[in-house]
């Protein structure tokens, strides 16, 4: 897969990252090198190998359905940039 400058701008936008034109120009060849390196794997005969989603063969780390105390509201809101004392206040989200 070819990483173009447009790809970088698009992904940066999705990740809400401000990337300068200068950096975009620098990143495109670098990322292409990395992707190209990964593409060597495509040459291997892997048709019979299921995609790996997790590196360890671990299953079912489960917990019982038992409520546990969490944070108080004061503690929860202490980390928010802004609140009305009950809810987190954020810039207006436009809808409808």
């Amino acid at each position: 897969m070819k990483i173009t400058e447009d790809t970088i701008r698009h992904v940066a936008k999705l990740a809400r990252l401000a990337v300068s034109d200068e950096d975009v120009a620098k990143l495109a060849p670098q990322l292409n090198d990395i992707m190209g390196y990964n593409e060597q794997l495509q040459a291997l005969p892997l048709d019979e190998v299921p995609p790996t989603s997790h590196p360890f063969a671990l299953y079912n780390a489960l917990r019982d359905d038992e409520p546990r105390p969490g944070l108080t509201r004061e503690q929860a809101l202490a980390n928010a940039p802004d609140s009305d004392g009950e809810q987190v206040r954020v810039p207006a989200v436009l809808e409808g």
Partner: peptide, 14 residues
């Protein structure tokens, strides 16, 4: 999310 009627901000309950 609760959007302020005047569109000035949004309140969020988690």
């Amino acid at each position: 999310s609760m959007h302020a009627p005047d569109g000035s901000h949004t309140l969020v309950d988690y």
